[in-house]
Design a protein around this nucleic acid. Structure first.
Lengths: 144, 144
DNA sequence: AAAATACAAGACAAATTTTATCTTAATTCG
DNA sequence: CGAATTAAGATAAAATTTGTCTTGTATTTT
C-alpha cells in the first residue's frame, strides 16, 4: 500500500523543476543529482512523463525537459497514475462497473468508496503545492 | 497502489465469517472454498490473523477459527495493516517524524497529509459493514 | 490408546513486480 | 564533424508476492 520508488522519484524530479523559473530546461543528470536518484532510472521515468505529455523533451546539446503544463495543474494523482498506472485499491475495483460480479460481490462497493477518497486525496495536492511547501509557510490547509 | 491479494483474501474470509451466527467456528477449508482462494494460502493468512489476536484459533477435530472481536470493531485498516504491514504511502513517511530530513524534505508533510486521509478512509469501514452491504441496502452513507 | 481432524510453524519455490542498467540510435548545437 | 542529450528497447538483478509442502501439535472421537 504505497507508491513506487519510481513515482517518488518522478514527483521529486518535478518538484525540483517547479522551483526553477518557469520555462527552464533541465537535464536529467541534474534532476537526478538533486533528488538522490539513479540518473539512468530517472531518465526512463522522464521518458514516460514526456510520452504522457506532462513535460516536453528536447534532444540535443542544449536539450532537456520543461513543463508542458503549469505545476499547479499537475496533481499528484496524475503523476502517480502515469508512472504506476491507474490507482486501483483492489483487483475487483478497476472502475465503476468492472467487478466480475458486482451486486453479488461483498466488497466491491466498499472498495470503490475507499478508492474515491484516496483519489480525492491524491488530487488535492499539486506539484506546485509540493514545491511551495515548507513547514508553516504553506497556505494550504492540511486535513485534520 | 493497492492492497495485496492476501489482504483481499483476509477481508473476504472475515466477511464470510461475519455472516455466520456470532461464535460460529469456521474451518479454513470452508472459508477458502467460499472465497475462491487457495486453502493453503488462506491458512497462512488466518495464522497471521490469529497471531494478531483478531481471531481465535482452535486446534483439533472440532477446531477452526472464531472472531476474537466484534466484526463491527474490526476496521479494514486493521486487517490490511496486520497482513500487509503499516500503511505507509511513501518511504519518507513512516510516521509523524521519521523522514531523514523533515523540514528539509519537500514531500514529507504532503504525503503525511494524504496518508492521513487514506487511513481515515480505511478506518471508516468495518468487516461488519462489508458483510452487511448490498447495493441500496447498506445504511452507511457513502462518500460523494 | 489409536485414529482422524484441524491448526501451527517454517522451509521452500514459483511468479510477478520493481528497480534499475546498458547499448544503440536519433537529434541538436556549435 | 563532434559533443551533448534524449529515445527506445533489451536485459538483468533484487525484492516482493503468492503460493506449496512437510512436519509437528493439539483435540476429539472411537
Amino acid at each position: 500500500m504505497n507508491i513506487s520508488r519510481a513515482s517518488d522519484y518522478a514527483i521529486r524530479g518535478l518538484v525540483y523543476m517547479a522551483k526553477k523559473p518557469a520555462g527552464t530546461v533541465c537535464f536529467v543528470k541534474d534532476i537526478a543529482k538533486n533528488t538522490n536518484s539513479p540518473a539512468s532510472f530517472m531518465s526512463k521515468i522522464f521518458q514516460t512523463l514526456a510520452k504522457s505529455g506532462l513535460v516536453h523533451s528536447f534532444i540535443g546539446t542544449k536539450g532537456g525537459f520543461t513543463f508542458n503544463a503549469r505545476p499547479e495543474d499537475i496533481t499528484i494523482k496524475m503523476v502517480v497514475e502515469i508512472i504506476d498506472g491507474p490507482v486501483v485499491l483492489n483487483r475487483c475495483v478497476v472502475n465503476k462497473s468492472s467487478c466480475q460480479d458486482v451486486g453479488n460481490c461483498d466488497v466491491h462497493f466498499m472498495w470503490l468508496d475507499i478508492q474515491k477518497m484516496l483519489t480525492k486525496a491524491l488530487s488535492s495536492y499539486s506539484i506546485a503545492d509540493f514545491a511551495a511547501y515548507k513547514k508553516g509557510i504553506c497556505d494550504k490547509k492540511m486535513s485534520d
